[in-house]
């Protein structure tokens, strides 16, 4: 009885763990570098582990180490962290449309693991909830998927950080550099099914990247603001310039590969 009820959850969990593998592969070298750097600015290993366990945000953690080592007051580090994290307001708001069938307390737990990478993967796999109430099975599948995806990425991030603290350069330099670039391969590969479905989406994607490059490199805008402004401007332009697919409907309902209907009809294997 119980196992039959939980089957969609565990099915989702398995898919989430598999979907997290490329994310974990990209996190590990970054986390190792973080651990190494944390030791370099004389953090204790417990403090290093605690930061990864509690914060779970790569860009913010590196920035915090940098500011901490230059003697910046804690309050200022916290404010800088807030700025870097503002983009997650947009990402969580967007992803919320795909998790409406999950109860709010569970959403509050799952929100902890919303990173650039888990957001990107989740929003290409999970479909937008229909207006009609979704089946409990679908809600369970989504809960399982997000749990597997986020927990696997989290584990890689925390373990990599501790390993980097004690082990230092565990990976050969060239391999480590290449694995970090793997995160950008992940983002590019996540974009492709969307473009294949609607080639016009290349416009908002390139516009956002163009704005972000302009703001950061040419105008020297702080990374946090640059990111948020680029996403907002490019998305607003898309709303006005791109054709409206059926009044108010989502322009993208997923990456095609896994945006199938009910959980039981999802394709198995890779995501």
């Amino acid at each position: 009885m119980v196992s039959a009820m939980n089957r969609p959850f565990f099915s989702g969990l398995g898919h989430g763990v598999i979907a997290a593998m490329p994310v974990a592969a990209g996190y590990i070298p970054v986390a190792i570098a973080f651990g190494l750097l944390a030791r370099g600015v004389s953090l204790h290993w417990q403090e290093t582990a605690a930061m990864s366990l509690l914060v779970f945000a790569g860009a913010s953690q590196f920035m915090a180490l940098d500011l901490f080592s230059s003697g910046t007051p804690a309050l200022q580090i916290v404010l800088s962290t807030l700025l870097v994290n503002l983009r997650h307001v947009l990402m969580s708001a967007s992803l919320s449309g795909r998790v409406q069938s999950i109860s709010r307390p569970i959403r509050a737990v799952l929100a902890f693991g919303v990173t650039d990478e888990s957001f990107s993967v989740a929003s290409s796999v999970l479909r937008v909830d229909e207006k009609s109430p979704s089946s409990p099975a679908e809600s369970l599948w989504k809960t399982g998927f997000l749990t597997g995806l986020e927990a696997t990425a989290y584990l890689a991030w925390v373990a990599g950080g501790v390993a980097g603290f004690f082990g230092g350069g565990l990976l050969p330099g060239a391999l480590s550099d290449a694995m970090v670039l793997g995160l950008y391969a992940l983002f590019t590969a996540l974009l492709m099914p969307r473009l294949r479905k609607d080639l016009l989406l290349v416009v908002p994607a390139v516009t956002a990247g163009g704005f972000n490059s302009l703001f950061r490199i040419v105008l020297g805008v702080a990374t946090g603001w640059s990111f948020v402004l680029s996403m907002i401007l490019a998305s607003i332009l898309a709303v006005f310039l791109l054709p409206d697919p059926e009044q108010g409907a989502e322009p993208d309902t997923g990456a095609g590969a896994n945006s199938g209907a009910a959980p039981d009809s999802r394709r198995d294997g890779s995501s």
Binding site: S94, S120, S123, T188, L191, P204
Partner: peptide, 8 residues
């Protein structure tokens, strides 16, 4: 709905 694409 455009945020996933512009974020990427």
């Amino acid at each position: 709905g455009f945020i996933p694409v512009t974020a990427l």
